[in-house]
Design a protein around this nucleic acid. Structure first.
Length: 274
DNA sequence: AATTAACTCAACCGCTCAAAT
DNA sequence: TATTTGAGCGGTTGAGTTAAT
């Protein structure tokens, strides 16, 4: 005898989430907290698999997600952590406040691993490659901002020196704070920063425009009845979030100092696993 | 302006493991 | 104790977007 069967997959909606679905999910989590994903679709009247709901929340709707450029500090930290932990993206993400495992995974696969290769470093082992492996650089990157007019087919396989890192620009959005009802599932953070309709500018968050689904919530009326505003989009209180990278980066710097001591690195890696 | 190629990233898939029964 | 499920994770895919030709 086990648990009750998982949600039937019959009639479930798949593919991209609509603003309405997002609203339902956010409203539900605001009220009941995270967790209980299996029962969530029924309670929230969402025709989605609970697993899909969880993923949507964790990777996109969660209000403490930080969106914007991944800084060079974060770059270094990701590379460093990857060398210690391998492809354990959730652990790596755990050391980068506001970043999701999916985001870091994507960032690694599309950019960082290639950058390492271009620098003659094996992205899996983080060791120098026997001979400089030259990264296959796409014509797009090669020719961007240059007058490279080579045949693209050739350019694709042309051996190139190190790639100039490009700026990573995830979809911009506003991030501010909001208090969620605390429950068992919010042990790790009871204060959330969240996308908010109108307060960003007031709180000095005006450098990022409202874009993407959030703008629909707050500006269009479909169901975006301004739920976030109504439900308590509190003024953003300057907090450690503002320096959210400080702590992990500090640890990272300490690691650098102790770089020669592999035992310390191992111990640090193990501490992350606990 | 149209076509092609490259790139991004949200979402899905399948697996593992702990917890529930 | 065995069985089954829920939750979480990493790998992969593919639609949409952007840039080059």
């Amino acid at each position: 005898m086990g648990r009750a069967p998982c949600c039937t997959k019959v009639g479930l909606h798949r593919g991209p989430w609509t603003p309405r679905e997002d609203t339902l999910l956010v409203n539900y989590v605001q009220t009941h907290g995270e967790g209980h994903w299996r029962s969530l679709p029924n309670k929230a009247v969402l025709h989605r698999c609970g697993k899909s709901c969880r993923l949507r929340w964790m990777n996109y709707l969660r209000p403490d997600i930080k969106r914007g450029n991944i800084s060079t500090d974060e770059d270094d930290l990701i590379i460093r952590l990857h060398s210690l932990l391998g492809n354990r993206w959730s652990l790596i993400a755990g050391r980068l406040p506001g970043r999701t495992d999916n985001e870091i995974k994507n960032y690694w696969n599309t950019y960082l691993s290639k950058r390492l290769l271009s620098q003659g470093i094996d992205p899996n082992t983080h060791k120098k490659l026997p001979k400089p492996v030259v990264q296959q650089v796409s014509k797009r990157k090669n020719s961007r901002g240059s007058n490279n007019k080579q045949n693209p087919k050739k350019a694709k396989t042309t051996l190139e020196p190190a790639v100039i890192p490009k700026v990573h620009l995830p979809k911009p959005s506003k991030v501010t704070s909001i208090y969620f009802p605390r429950n068992d599932s919010f042990d790790q953070c009871n204060t959330f920063s969240t996308v908010c309709s109108s307060q960003g500018e007031e709180e000095g968050m005006g450098t990022q425009a409202i874009q993407g689904p959030w703008s629909e919530y707050v500006s269009n009326g479909e169901n975006g009845t301004g739920f976030l505003s109504e439900s308590g989009c509190h003024p953003r209180v300057p907090s450690e979030d503002d320096n959210s990278l400080d702590k992990p980066y500090e640890e990272y710097l300490q690691l650098l100092k102790a770089n020669e001591d592999q035992l310390q690195l191992d111990a640090f890696a193990e501490s992350l696993l606990i």
